[in-house]
Design a protein around this nucleic acid. Structure first.
Length: 451
DNA sequence: GCGATCAGAT
DNA sequence: CACATCTGATCGC
């Protein structure tokens, strides 16, 4: 994770690290396990280091995306065939057995560090000889392969959201998912402090706080796509479109366009190679094409567009006039989006043309959605996954007010940055050991943080 | 030297 | 625009 992640990216009470693979002198204890929520570049810090040699748990699609990851410069070189060799940043994470000339297979040196877990499936994992946890992956509605992690163990249970978009349907789906229902907060009026034997309370939610300071509600992804399609449909049917899908996470727009216009989307070689290999995206897989001439909808390389949409606006292209409209995803409030759609609708209604369209598609939840999400669980603590270094911990100070009424009764958000003692379930020897371990862990992490 | 990390711009 | 990405500088083995 970027600078400013609390607990050095550990998720107390577990010695597990999320989205941070750097080795640092001030991390006293090595992580017992690494988790990767998704493959955006600010979540894979340290993974490209050739010296990295630990197991990483992620989704099947994230693994595929990581192993096929190409940086921009490499993509360009490969496309022009100046360089045929496959330079993939994370190739060292998976090394197959070597076969010598006489046919002998050598397994030494081979490895596959990325352990892909299926979604919605609790999987037991041994951290050490004595300590096990159960890990469940849930789709995070952020980009292909992006997941949330539920980690359950004798020390407690935490939910790490990774980066996510907790729009209304997402909360609905989550609350109906049996694998997490144990942690749903009972309705306030039913609250009984002595009746918690059947349900459980999350010790912490590690929350995607990228848009924590945004109070303005944003449209759902569906509302955003619906508005865009409405406007696109008002343009002449020979209009070409370039969709600025500049990073993973705008696939909903591509799918909506394909559905609405019954046409495939042209994507560049790199995106095509990824999209067609995503296990959990069969529809996306079927709506993209590598053939530029086959469609008027394009989401190819941003700074190296194909000839079909190379010229923007209403300029002459080869022998005929071709109008290329630029579609740009933005973060925009609900009301502003409604106004934009209304006004642009009016312009297009008069027969005027536009050269660009916006689509208000947010890949992160603003504060109102974060509140609703946290309220669903009422965890004991909320920990921001990122802290803006420029704000000097302002978020921490504000967190109490921001999530008032969203936490476990009796836990004030003042405690939100300080993990409480994990509860001791029994007085057996093993539990006491675990408790001692957990205490030591927290002490070290706090010490490291203060230093 | 190279690779890893960071600042700055887009 | 965007909170993700690329580039080029800098640090360290």
């Amino acid at each position: 994770m970027p600078t400013g992640t609390p607990f050095k990216s550990f998720i107390p009470p577990f010695l597990i690290r999320v989205d941070d693979f750097t080795s640092s002198d001030d991390v006293e204890q090595p992580a017992q396990l690494h988790l990767l929520s998704h493959t955006h570049s600010d979540h894979i810090a340290g993974l490209s280091a050739k010296s990295f040699a630990s197991t990483v748990i992620c989704s099947h699609d994230a693994k595929e995306m990581l192993l096929r990851h190409e940086v921009y410069a490499e993509r360009a070189l490969k496309d022009t065939e100046v360089r045929a060799e496959n330079v993939r940043t994370f190739q060292h994470l998976k090394v197959g057995p070597r076969t010598s000339q006489d046919g002998t297979v050598y397994y030494n040196g081979s490895r596959d560090l990325l352990k892909s877990f299926p979604l919605n499936t609790p999987i037991p994992w041994e951290l050490t000889n004595e300590k096990s946890v159960t890990i469940t992956l849930f789709d995070a509605n952020h980009c292909p392969g992006a997941v949330m992690f539920l980690v359950e163990g004798p020390q407690g249970a935490v939910l790490h959201t990774g980066d996510f978009r907790a729009e209304p349907w997402f909360l609905e789906a989550l609350s109906r998912n049996p694998l997490i229902q144990r942690y749903l907060a009972p309705p306030e009026e039913w609250w009984d402090p002595h009746g918690e034997s059947l349900t459980s309370t999350l010790d912490a939610i590690y929350l995607d706080t990228a848009c924590l300071l945004s109070e303005t509600p944003v449209p759902s992804k569906d509302e955003a796509c619906k508005g865009l399609i409405e406007l696109m449909a008002m343009l002449p049917s020979d209009t070409f479109f370039f969709i600025n899908a500049w990073t993973w996470g705008y696939e909903d727009v591509l799918k909506a366009i394909a559905r609405a216009f019954g046409a495939k989307i042209h994507v560049d070689r790199y995106k095509h190679s990824i999209y067609t290999r995503l296990k959990s995206e069969p529809f996306l897989n079927s709506i993209v094409t590598a053939d530029p001439a086959s469609t008027r909808f394009h989401a190819c390389e941003r700074f190296d567009r194909c000839d079909e949409v190379a010229v923007e606006g209403r300029q002459a292209y080869t022998s005929k006039k071709r109008h290329v409209v630029y579609v740009n995803p933005v973060t925009m409030g609900k009301e502003k989006w409604a106004a934009y759609v209304r006004e642009t609708h009016a312009i297009l209604g008069t027969g005027q043309l536009v050269d660009n369209l916006l689509v208000a598609l947010s890949r992160h939840s603003p504060l109102p959605e974060l509140r609703d999400f946290v309220k669903l669980f009422k965890p004991k603590r909320v920990v921001p996954n990122t802290l803006d270094p420029n704000l000097g911990g302002l978020e921490h100070a504000c967190l109490e007010n921001m999530f008032k009424g969203c936490l476990y009764p009796g836990s004030s958000a003042a405690k939100s940055s300080i993990p409480p003692r994990p509860p001791v379930q029994s007085t057996s020897l093993s539990s006491r050991d675990l408790q001692a371990d957990a205490d030591a862990t927290l002490k070290n992490l706090e010490g490291g943080k203060a230093a």
